[in-house]
Nucleic acid binder design. Structure first.
Lengths: 341, 341
DNA sequence: TTGTAGGCGTTATCAA
DNA sequence: TTGATAACGCCTACAA
């Protein structure tokens, strides 16, 4: 069995409690004993046992990550490695470890969360997605357990600490940009409507059109499960409308990549025949042909701030709920041009 | 404070140990008391505390994941979400949770691993990458702590349980395929030479050439940090050789995507002017233009088997070390054609 | 089949 | 400044 605090105590000729205090670097221990104890720890190769510590102190120094369904396409999105990096860095700075749950079905995920939370494995949790009517979220709220969500909560926005972009405004600006370029026939290609981010971006798009006195056209709004044949179909239909759009607002870079391919197959050129602006500014967006004009949403910061604010909450339960808005910025590349018509 | 085993015991009018046995579903408890206890648990909304259980049973039911440096480009590779899915599923089946360490520098990662392992946070660990001269690996070996590596260990291959593809053979087959198509000027575009997988694939490439009596040419082997300007440079140089290659073996889909772009910028057509075959068969490979011919390495299985075999090891310490080879398969798409010359 | 009691490795409260 | 000692919540001989 591994070396424990007692072994150290014995070797250093002090009480276990003293060793404990040395570990915590308590100021009420003489420098001399600290030295002595530290030497003993080194000699024995002692490492404190987190589990025991957690039990005694009722805190795990770990935060839980709740991912979307692993079978879901969004799971494949480069968004995740990047938020993960941000969360990881935020947690690391405060010496918190990371615990994860994933699952195939919503049921699996839910159970995983319940276990993790009730089982006391973590001190708090960050929800890496925000969808409407989420059982997991309700559970977290009911147990008033410390948690943050990345994205905008479907409801109780004021009561839930979250880190988000202003996706409504971002989408409006993206659409405005196309309008400025002279486009009036602008379509919206969105993803899963259960994700709050999708609806926010859709609303922003609509707002921009209305503000510019451009009529909304239902045929101009599609939601594709990108990569699926259905997605290609949708794009094809869009382009075969009587009055096909000259520009597309696409809710996600990865989707934009799919659209780009469909367009290419159809012999339609971007940006000559049609302009595209998308969101997230993921690595891929600069690797596509043409490189995508995309709204950078600072994914890393989203994660970083989520971790930071969660840790604040667990360390100070009186911490007020807050909403952190991460800035966005249009990165202009080569998928948009002045309208041809 | 949360409801504990004692509360349940009291309500059910039994001893705590009985409750404990009910949780473990011990066969030596009468069905009647089980019912009684279970009812009490439900009524109180009891959930066992993992931390306490871990301390008492000296097992955490959690496995640790060691990721490569988060600043590293490989971290962005779609490879990771996919292995993660596999690991997650393997762990889930056996009711294990997932714990993670990441870090920016090798030092950070190393410390994270030491803490996680020595601190007893996890029962075992899976190393998600394999590079040469890895301190982390040595540490794990020295402490003979249960662990599996995904990929081929740099050394002690016989003593380390790992899950890998036969990357040597895969690369040979990929190259053979190009040779069959009539190519004789075949270059290799590899990634980080510190990753074992890169060297394996390089060796397989060389083997194929030698077997076909094609002379090896140093100028035909480049290693690019894809996405970096340097990468583009390298490809440009390759193509401006006196005798430029007519086909490329690219060590990774994401890199191939970068190459594809550079080629496109140069006005070189794939597969008409040059053929490309790459590895991993990640989602992106079918989304590129042209869709990439790629060697599918069954990433999901890599993760799944790694988790399974690790859990076997932690549950039965006498389990022999083993090497699990996941099959691969060339997925032919449209980036390769018969040589033009 | 069930209960009692000690222990898992720490932290934290009280004394000293 | 340090040492006993009682938690923390559960598991597991050993007894009954």
């Amino acid at each position: 069995m591994a070396v424990t605090i007692k072994d150290v105590a014995k070797l250093a000729n002090v009480a276990p409690s003293t060793v404990s205090r040395v570990i915590a670097n308590s100021p009420r221990i003489s420098e001399k004993t600290k030295q002595k104890v530290r030497k003993a720890m080194d000699k024995l190769g002692y490492h404190p046992n987190f589990i025991a510590r957690s039990l005694a102190s009722q805190s795990t120094q770990a935060i839980g990550l709740i991912m979307p369904s692993s079978t879901d396409v969004v799971f494949q999105n480069p968004f995740f490695p990047t938020v993960l990096r941000g969360i990881s860095e935020g947690a690391h700075e405060k010496h918190y470890a990371l615990h994860m749950t994933t699952g195939k079905t919503d049921e699996e995920i839910y159970n995983g969360v319940v276990q993790m939370v009730q089982g006391g494995r973590v001190d708090g949790v960050v929800l890496l997605y925000s969808k409407i009517e989420d059982k997991v979220l309700s559970f977290l709220q009911d147990g008033d357990y410390p948690f943050t969500v990345i994205g905008k909560p479907f409801r109780d926005v004021e009561e839930i600490t979250h880190v988000d972009n202003d996706n409504f405004r971002a989408a409006k600006e993206a659409t405005d940009y196309l309008i400025e370029l002279g486009h009036t026939h602008i379509a919206f290609v969105g993803g899963d409507l259960n994700l709050v981010v999708t609806v926010e971006r859709l609303l922003g798009y609509e707002k921009a059109l209305r503000a510019a006195d451009i009529e909304l056209d239902n045929d101009y709004v599609i939601h594709e499960e990108f990569l699926k044949e259905g997605g290609q179909e949708a794009v094809r239909e869009l382009l075969s409308l009587e009055k096909p759009p000259t520009a597309l607002v696409v809710a996600d870079d990865l989707m934009a990549l799919g659209v780009l391919n469909t367009l290419d197959e159809m012999g339609i050129s971007v940006p000559d025949d049609i302009s595209i602006i998308s969101f997230n500014n993921v690595l891929l967006s600069e690797m596509s042909r043409p490189p995508l004009t995309s709204v950078d949403i600072n994914i890393f910061d989203l994660g970083y701030q989520a971790a930071k604010s969660l840790i604040q909450m667990v360390e100070d339960p009186k911490e007020p709920t807050k909403r952190i808005i991460i800035p966005h910025q249009i990165i202009k590349r080569h998928s948009c041009s002045v309208t041809a018509r």
